[in-house]
Design a protein around this nucleic acid. Structure first.
Lengths: 139, 139
DNA sequence: ATTATTGCAAAGACTTTGCAACTCC
DNA sequence: GGAGTTGCAAAGTCTTTGCAATAAT
């Protein structure tokens, strides 16, 4: 897809451009959702069965360190990942384990205002995210 | 400590009162924070080295199912647990992995108002919790 | 040429499971 | 007495690691 993109990112971060990293990135692009490592491994190996599982884990770890992607908090599941993006919140379905992104700039604005004038004792706020739990309704 | 408490809870949930369950509960009471299974196992075994690890895991699972405790979302760590309590939010320290509770009724009220008039497409909201990331400051 | 990265397989951490023995109601 | 629980050890799942071989700058 937009392969230049990841190449630029890797250069910027001072990481070597390897086929493996590009392929893992492409898999992340294809898997829009919040894939587990296992989803990513399956996706990668569809086309490249030769890439080692350990390499994929190491690549994900590297991406997380470099803030190219983020781990997503889950409360039961195994770890999930997502590409770092615009500010958003998460919808969790307790039943299915599905996670969706939730964008709401009005909410963001409100929280920003709120925390501008609010200090938490002994804590320096860097970011916040709302985890909304509930159920997805059939469309 | 307040042992009647857990006995009542177990009765209410239709679970048998066993020494093991009471002991795990006591450990949870002693470990205020957001203990991992391993913390809990260590705490339990201090006094009762005879209780099986599998039993502790099973007990925690049962408590979660019965909504006596909750799993806490972590983004790297192993699973953590907490006793179900009043509405609160979480402060996460990325550096140390420490999690603290954050109570803020003003914030709760504001969010409640906000979501009263806000529908999310295809999603039925049941609860929400703010995860605030940042750093704990030395006191 | 130098240094980072990969593949592989083994080890590690954490959690679950199967089942006979045992407890609680 | 009977259903629900426990202990135990083995198996499972997910992830990390060590290191020689290999590839990127």
């Amino acid at each position: 897809m937009d392969e230049n993109n990841i190449r630029d990112i890797l250069i910027e971060k001072g990481l070597k451009i390897t086929p493996q990293r590009v392929i893992v990135w492409d898999a992340l692009m294809n898997l829009k959702d919040h894939p587990t490592a296992d989803h990513i491994i399956t996706e990668v190996r569809k086309e490249n069965p030769n890439i080692a599982v350990g390499t994929i884990y190491k690549t994900l770890e590297t991406f997380v360190e470099q803030r190219i992607i983020e781990r997503v908090k889950t409360d039961k599941d195994t770890m999930r990942y997502e590409v770092v993006m615009d500010k958003h919140h998460h919808l969790y379905c307790a039943e299915s384990g599905k996670i969706d992104d939730y964008y709401d700039s009005e909410l963001d604005e409100m929280l920003k205002e709120y925390f501008k004038n609010k200090n938490i004792r002994n804590f320096k706020i860097e970011d916040y995210k709302l985890q909304i739990t509930g159920k997805f309704i059939n469309k």
